[in-house]
């Protein structure tokens, strides 16, 4: 059973057989759905924003799947799962950039679709309960997830996060970050990487969400999501 299971799934795919088989499969699992062969058919139905989950193909006749994702994302924050026969980087990147939550390739077994729906629902549920961005509370040495889970930070971890949050838009070099956090780099420069790795694991374990700490290969590290900094120790 999927927690926060969608009650009305929209399937848009020009492959009628796939829509029919998938619809049958989802109905058996108490996930009602409606199928559309084109994006235009969905738009004509005037039900674009009335669904709470979307399963879309990319290679649609007429309005393309990526454009449809953009249209849907403009109206609703419901989960969007892309199931496409395309397997190129362009299709993958453009779908996720447009706002899709997950991209899986055809051929798929319906059990995989079911798992993907469950996964997207779990993530969107975490997002929907979140009223704030990530928060870094310097006074309490805590990092708080949008869902409210608090992670206790060591002094070094606090320094790492404070330094990265100070310049949200730009990656920070490993040397600068190590200097700011007071980490003495060893010969192979792994002390900082180890500290970041442990911090990430700590955040993921404590929040059940991906950490906003991002590795920018060849440059350093960056915070990938907005973080509200509270009670800056320097008086901020």
């Amino acid at each position: 059973m999927i927690p926060n299971a969608p009650k009305n799934i929209c399937i848009v795919d020009d492959d009628d057989d796939f829509v029919e088989f998938l619809g049958q499969y989802l109905n058996v699992r108490d996930l009602p759905s409606a199928g559309f062969a084109t994006a235009e058919a969905l738009l004509k139905s005037k039900r674009l924003s009335s669904f709470d989950f979307y399963i879309l193909d990319l290679g649609l006749p007429g309005i393309d799947g990526v454009d449809l994702i953009t249209l849907i994302r403009g109206q609703t924050s419901a989960g969007i799962l892309v199931i496409s026969g395309r397997m190129g980087a362009d299709a993958f990147n453009s779908a996720l950039t447009a706002g899709a939550d997950m991209f899986i390739n055809k051929p798929v077994r319906f059990d995989q679709v079911f798992n993907a729906i469950a996964s997207v629902c779990r993530r969107t549920a975490l997002k929907s309960t979140a009223s704030t961005p990530w928060r870094l509370d310097s006074r309490r040495s805590q990092f708080v997830s949008p869902a409210g889970s608090a992670i206790e930070l060591t002094p070094v971890e606090l320094k790492i996060l404070s330094s990265l949050c100070a310049d949200f838009n730009n990656p920070m070099s490993r040397q600068d970050l190590a200097d700011a956090a007071g980490i003495v780099q060893n010969i192979d420069d792994r002390n900082l990487d180890s500290a970041i790795f442990r911090l990430r694991r700590k955040i993921e374990n404590g929040t059940d969400q991906p950490s906003p700490l991002k590795t920018v290969h060849g440059l350093g590290y960056q915070i990938s999501e907005p973080v509200e900094v509270i009670g800056n120790r320097d008086g901020g």
């Binding site: 057989d17 026969g85 395309r86 190129g88 055809k106 051929p107 798929v108 077994r109 319906f110």
Partner: peptide
């Protein structure tokens, strides 16, 4: 990609039928 898409779509449906 085009070729495999054309081949994979019927295969996908065949898999669904078999399921």
């Amino acid at each position: 990609q085009l070729l495999t898409h054309e081949v994979r779509t019927p295969i996908n449906n065949a898999q669904a039928s078999l399921q």
